[in-house]
Simulated scan of single mutants.
Amino acid sequence: MSLKSIKPLTRAPLLHVSVQESLRNFISDNGLIPGTMLPAESDLANQLGVSRNSLREGIKALESLGVLEARRGVGIFVKAFSFEPLLDNLAYGLGGALRQVEELIEIRRVLEAGMIGRTLAMISDHDIAELRDTVNRMGAHAKRGESFADEDQRFHTLLFRCQNNETFTRLIDIFWLAFYKASDFVNLDNADPVATWKDHAAIVDAVEKKDLVEVKKRLDHHYEGISRVIAANK
C-alpha cells in the first residue's frame, strides 16, 4: 500500500505534542484502520525531523489515549477506538468534584429517559426476567441494610442491553465510575437501600407493562434520590 508522506512538524514549545498531532494526521490522511502497522520508528523520526526519544514520547502519549498500541519486538499499530482510556483517566480527573459528577448524573438521567421508549419496543421476556432477578438480589441486600452497587449497575445495563448500543453502554459505565470515584472523597453511601430497591422494582413493573409514561416517571423518581444524596454532600 502506498502511503502519503507524514507532514513535517511545526515545532511547538512541547515537541511531543507536535509529534502526537503529526502522527494523528498521518493516520487520518492515510485512512489507516485499526491493526495497521506504522512505519518503523527510525523512518518516522527522520520524516518528522526529531529524535527517536521525542518520537517515543509522542507514541507513549497516544498509547495512553488508546490511539496507538506498541507491540514489543513487532512495531507500532493503530488501535481500535475504545472508551477504556477515558474510563481509566476519568477517575483521576474528577476526583471529588461533585459539581461535575452532578452534571454527569443529569446527562445520564436525560439519556435514559430518552432511550427507554426504544427499550419498551425491543425488550424480551428473558431480559425482563433478568431484571427481576437483579431486583430480587437488591432486595435481599436491602433487607440486611447492605449496599448493592454491582446489582444497581447491572440493572441499568440490562435495561438497555436489548438495544445493542455499545456506545450508550460504555457511557453508563462512565457515569458509574464517576459517581463511585467521588465516593472515595465524600460519603455518597445510599442512606435508604430499601427505597432504592423499591424504585428499581417499580421501574421493572412499568417496563413489563410497556407503560412509557410510568417508566419515565419512575426513572425520574430514582434519579431524584441520587441527586439528593449528592446535594447532601455539597
Rank of each mutant, 00 (worst) to 15 (best):
S2N: 14
S2W: 15
S2R: 09
I6D: 01
I6C: 04
K7D: 15
T10V: 06
H16R: 07
S28T: 15
S28G: 14
D29P: 14
P34Y: 09
T36G: 14
P39R: 11
A40F: 12
D43Q: 14
L44E: 12
V50R: 07
R52A: 12
S54K: 04
S54Q: 05
L55Q: 12
K60R: 06
L62P: 01
E69I: 11
A70N: 06
G73H: 05
V74D: 06
K79W: 02
K79M: 04
K79A: 08
F81W: 03
F81E: 02
P85E: 06
L86Y: 05
L86R: 03
D88F: 11
L90I: 02
A91Y: 00
A91C: 03
A97Q: 12
R99P: 02
L104D: 02
E106D: 04
L111C: 10
E112Q: 05
M115L: 14
M115R: 13
M122S: 02
H126L: 08
M138T: 04
K143S: 05
K143L: 11
E151M: 00
D152H: 10
R154L: 08
H156A: 06
H156Y: 09
L159D: 04
F160R: 01
Q163R: 08
N164C: 11
N164S: 13
T169M: 11
R170D: 03
R170I: 05
I172Y: 07
Y180N: 13
Y180E: 13
K181M: 15
N187A: 12
N190Y: 12
N190A: 14
A191R: 15
D192N: 10
P193M: 02
P193A: 01
P193Q: 09
P193R: 01
T196N: 13
A201G: 08
A201S: 11
A206N: 06
V207R: 03
L212G: 10
H221I: 07
G225P: 04
I226V: 14
I226M: 10
S227F: 04
S227Y: 00
R228M: 10
V229I: 09
